[in-house]
């Protein structure tokens, strides 16, 4: 199992669309993916779980990934968050 802390940077936070992107990506890996925030632990493959964290800009999340492709999954997921969920302003 690997863990990593990330900070949400985009202005709308983990809103519907970013949540959908995150869940979709997480779903493409075999590993289990959980998110911890303020004492909650939610299934990172569930859009409702992720959305109802109500993580706003600046929120710190702890990602927990475990499974056969955990390294790869964590890298991809952290990348998505760092790239503001692939959404550009253009």
């Amino acid at each position: 199992m690997i863990k990593k802390t990330v900070t949400i940077k985009n202005s709308t936070g983990l809103h519907a669309r970013p949540s959908a992107a995150l869940v979709k990506l997480a779903g493409s890996f075999k590993s289990d993916f959980y998110i911890h925030m303020y004492g909650y632990r939610v299934n990172g493959k569930s859009i409702l779980g992720v959305m109802t964290l109500a993580a706003e800009q600046g929120a710190e999340l702890l990602f927990e990934v475990s499974g056969p492709d955990e390294e790869e999954a964590m890298e991809a997921i952290v990348d998505l968050v760092d790239n503001n969920f692939g959404m550009s302003d253009e």
């Binding site: 936070g13 809103h15 519907a16 909650y40 409702l48 959305m51 109802t52 964290l53 109500a54």
Partner: peptide, 16 residues
């Protein structure tokens, strides 16, 4: 889930 959003007190998430 609705309860959780309500508790969050976050303005933008209240809309959801």
């Amino acid at each position: 889930f609705i309860e959780r959003l309500r508790e969050s007190g976050s303005e933008i998430f209240q809309q959801r």
